[in-house]
Design a protein around this nucleic acid. Structure first.
Lengths: 228, 228
DNA sequence: AATGTGAATTATGAATGCATTTTGACGGCA
DNA sequence: TGCCGTCAAAATGCATTCATAATTCACATT
């Protein structure tokens, strides 16, 4: 019998606090829990049918991820998104995404490029039909695929954490036709860079792409700022 | 009466779990809790004289920071440092440090440059006397000051988190005379870039500087790898 | 009307207790 | 000797309970 195991598939049940973390993170990123609102422990406890102990552990984690703000003896809020936040987060995301482009070009395989090409075509179809939410879903998969191709979990974790903070802004609907067009053009360039493995150029394109996005988010924030 | 408050000095007592997080993080980064060892809750509870509830919250946070590994029902370990980790972490740190250099050149004030210049001179003195630990203490202050000058808390947080993971390697003693010389030369360049506000060049210098450091850490890891 | 006081209510902080899982020693057995 | 299965001890997961701080709201004061 062969005792040498293949790629070790680790079995790992999630504990309750971990599932809670994921579930609440989802709620925040989706916008079910809007930026700025209070998050009383009791509410979430009854909502999820759990006791406060694992829930509080989850809140601590989400706070370190920057999605919640905790104040001792005063509870938790969903972190607000301010223009200053954006000005901080986007440069960092830019640096990370640029790196992911460079690394992806080093490590990506032809089949992977093929899969991204498929996603790219899907995305263009959604663009033609102006299917905004489907467009964005595929769009996100493309960026995720590039991140995967970079073969760097540390990078992926850090990037996703920042991306989650930004994604809470429901800016998508705010994209102008012009910006949308520009974004698809940039995605065309992204494909070219991947296929020619031009890491230097890809990192620059991704950075510019993010600049474009920043403008859309900024605009959204201006249109949706709440007086609280 | 003037209702406009000056810079709002926020009073904020730390809660127990937060203090625990800081204390244990310190223990890990200092090497009091060595990479790979188990961290039973009970031990830390008796050590700090607290109950398990706040302690467990602290463990969760440190796990998301990457300093601990948690496995359901099996407890916590101090994360090991593998060569693969270094190959992941250093490129990301490089990207972040490069950004910090660029931003610092944009925002840094003359007095700040002056203070860094003072630190720089101190560091050179320690170098001349071969005072390794003092050298590193000041060295770290310089990098911290640059990070401060970048005026980006998100960047600072992310960078510090990664830096903490690396700092656990007690690689300092491992630095060769040659590398030490090279490091001080690079710091000379860093000062030049700051004084001329040459962000592009500074970001490159910082990246190279980090490459140098990576080699030292790699060497340390090779010399100190444990068969566990 | 604006501000101040204080008791009642509510929410969070932390300790304890119970259930479940893991660990590791021991002994049977091939 | 080496391999399993069993069971007690220990550790962790979660719920509950107690302690403490914050908030609310009624009422008094200016």
């Amino acid at each position: 019998m062969n005792t040498a195991l293949p790629t070790p598939t680790v079995f790992r049940r999630k504990s309750l606090h971990e599932e809670l973390t994921d579930a609440i993170r989802e709620q925040i990123v989706n916008g079910d829990l809007a930026p700025g609102i209070r998050v009383p422990e009791k509410n979430l406890c009854t909502f999820y049918g759990v006791s406060r102990t694992p829930l509080r552990e989850a809140l601590k984690v989400l706070a370190t991820e920057g999605l919640l703000s905790l104040e001792p003896n005063r509870g938790a809020w969903v972190s607000r998104i301010t223009p200053e936040d954006l000005d901080e987060v986007f440069p960092v995301m830019g640096a990370l995404e640029a790196l992911s482009g460079e690394l992806a070009c080093k490590h990506i395989t032809d089949p992977e490029i093929g899969r991204i090409r498929v996603l790219h075509r899907q995305m263009l179809k959604h663009y033609d039909k102006r299917e905004l939410s489907k467009y964005f879903e595929v769009n996100q998969k493309i960026h995720e695929a590039i991140l995967e191709a970079a073969r760097n979990d540390t990078l992926a974790t850090q990037y996703r954490s920042l991306a989650a903070r930004v994604r809470r802004a429901r800016y998508v609907a705010n994209m102008t036709q012009e910006r949308w067009k520009q974004a698809t053009d940039e995605h065309e360039q992204i494909m070219e860079c991947l296929e020619t493995r031009d890491g230097k150029r890809l990192s620059q394109v991704l950075k510019d792409h993010l600049e474009n996005k920043l403008e859309t988010v900024r605009q959204w924030l201006q249109d949706n700022r709440d007086p609280g």
